[in-house]
């Protein structure tokens, strides 16, 4: 039997050595990992406007060529001294809409029409969910959507990151006349007062995740409406300067 002293020293020594090994490896791989995360984000933004590129080069090219980034506030003003990459969505959605700094991505289609991509962040059943939803230039019709999750149940809630679910959002409307009704994720048999163009079939067995998506769209899209009204009223030639 080893003495207590030996046992303690052994445990401390082992911990210190493993910690050092991990620190070295973690620091060494950090630049690569950060590049991957950034690329993944661009890929996801493009997926919300229905561009499904996977190669690094293609993603970077498509993004640089056609996506502009800007930050606005709930008054609809463009905050020129803010950069999208410095904004942590998780912190922003926790604030009241009036205090938020909101990133907006403007995508220019091949035919010159613009799409407005709104980043979203919410909660699912087990952890965070997030995504991007793109609106056509009438600020009403959904062009595409992308959702992802950290730890939703595979086969149930995790289905939100699958194409079949995301494709359901295309051509849905967020406005009913002048009122915001959002796109509601709800089971097909539920009776509601709004028409079919405002609803999307939820995932069976993924109710809480579906509700999370529903709430996330509602919470994240609404604050942008002021800005959309503003530019819809302004001259159509208004150029959007990104950072």
């Amino acid at each position: 039997m080893h003495s207590n002293r030996y046992t303690f020293l052994f445990a401390i020594g082992l911990s210190v050595i493993t910690a050092m090994v991990l620190v070295v490896i973690s620091e060494g791989l950090k630049p690569l990992q950060e590049a991957n995360v950034a690329l993944d984000k661009k890929k996801n933004i493009l997926q919300s406007v229905r561009i499904y590129e996977t190669e690094r080069e293609a993603v970077e090219n498509a993004y640089d060529k056609s996506v502009e980034e800007l930050v606005i506030d709930s008054e609809g003003e463009i905050l020129t001294n803010e950069v999208v990459s410095n904004i942590e969505m998780k912190n922003e959605v926790a604030k009241t809409p009036a205090e938020r700094k909101m990133p907006l991505y403007v995508y220019t289609k091949e035919d010159g029409k613009k799409c407005y991509i709104i980043p979203m962040q919410g909660v699912g059943l087990w952890g965070p969910i997030w995504g991007y939803i793109s609106l056509e230039s009438d600020f009403n019709t959904v062009y595409g959507a992308y959702f992802d999750h950290k730890t939703e149940t595979p086969g149930l809630g995790a289905e939100i990151s699958e194409r079949f679910f995301q494709d359901r959002f295309t051509a849905k409307k967020i406005m009913d006349g002048q009122t915001f009704v959002s796109v509601n994720v709800i089971k097909s048999s539920a009776k509601v007062e709004y028409s079919d163009e405002h609803r999307v079939d939820a995932i069976s067995g993924g109710t809480i995740t579906s509700d999370g998506v529903d709430e996330m769209i509602d919470n994240c899209v609404k604050p942008y409406l002021t800005y959309f009204k503003k530019i819809a009223g302004a001259s159509p030639q208004l150029s959007l300067k990104g950072n």
Binding site: V21, L22, I25, Q33, N36, V37, D40
Partner: peptide
Amino acid sequence: AMLVTIVDLVLKGYMF
């Protein structure tokens, strides 16, 4: 746990 963390870090770096 140390070895698994290494695998995880390497995957995140090279096979995201």
